[in-house]
């Protein structure tokens, strides 16, 4: 049992354990921090699969960006103290059975299919190949992804900044196009 096998099992226990903590934790802050360990463990798993650039991007975007965004979302949508943030869980037993069936089916399909695999070779540095692919074969998706990010940022800023101040009951009559009312833009 060599080192990469040990690393694989340690990382998978980290990933699945903290994902389970994320799903079953009552406090949503605990869930967010468990999600951080899951994402970091996945980055380690990518590094184990010789996908260095994907691992670094995972750390930068997920752990550094999306997780902070989620924590901000939790912070902005709760009243009172963080320690008391409890969330409801419904239909735990039937959905657990349903999800277990789906998981077992997936694992059965994954393990019984004869995947066409290549003989394993040593990993090489992927940065050069990724850069060349990005500027040749994946040129159009690359540009479209840039435009998509721009649109998402503009849309998110517009949606978040035209909202009413919090803790106000919704007004009785809304204007037809609240976004075009300059008074609503704070």
């Amino acid at each position: 049992m060599d080192l990469s096998a040990v690393a694989f099992y340690v990382f998978s226990i980290l990933i699945i354990g903290s994902a389970a903590v994320m799903v079953f934790a009552k406090n949503i802050i605990h869930s967010a921090f468990a999600l951080m360990f899951t994402l970091a463990g996945l980055a380690l798993m990518y590094a184990l699969l010789f996908a260095g650039f994907v691992a670094v991007t995972q750390l930068l975007v997920y752990v550094g960006g999306i997780l902070v965004l989620i924590l901000f979302g939790v912070m902005l949508t709760t009243r009172g103290y963080f320690e008391k943030v409890k969330t409801r869980t419904v239909n735990l037993l039937p959905s657990t059975i349903f999800v277990a069936i789906i998981g077992v089916l997936l694992i059965a399909v994954f393990t019984t299919t004869e995947w066409s695999t290549m003989p394993l070779e040593d990993g090489e540095v992927t940065m050069t190949g990724l850069g060349e692919l990005l500027l040749t074969d994946f040129m159009l998706p690359f540009q479209v992804a840039g435009v998509l990010l721009l649109l998402a940022i503009i849309g998110a800023v517009l949606m978040a900044s035209s909202a009413r101040p919090p803790h106000q009951p919704p007004q009785a009559e809304q204007p037809d196009h609240p976004d075009e009312d300059p008074k609503n833009i704070s």
């Binding site: 994907v54 991007t57 995972q58 975007v61 997920y62 960006g65 999306i66 965004l69 989620i70 901000f72 979302g73 902005l76 949508t77 992804a145 998509l148 990010l149 649109l151 998402a152 940022i153 849309g155 998110a156 800023v157 949606m159 978040a160 909202a163």
Partner: peptide
């Protein structure tokens, strides 16, 4: 990953609204 980042930003804005 890129699309997940865009989705998270837009979804959080919707959640705030």
């Amino acid at each position: 990953i890129i699309i997940a980042a865009a989705e998270a930003a837009v979804a959080l804005a919707i959640v705030l609204n």
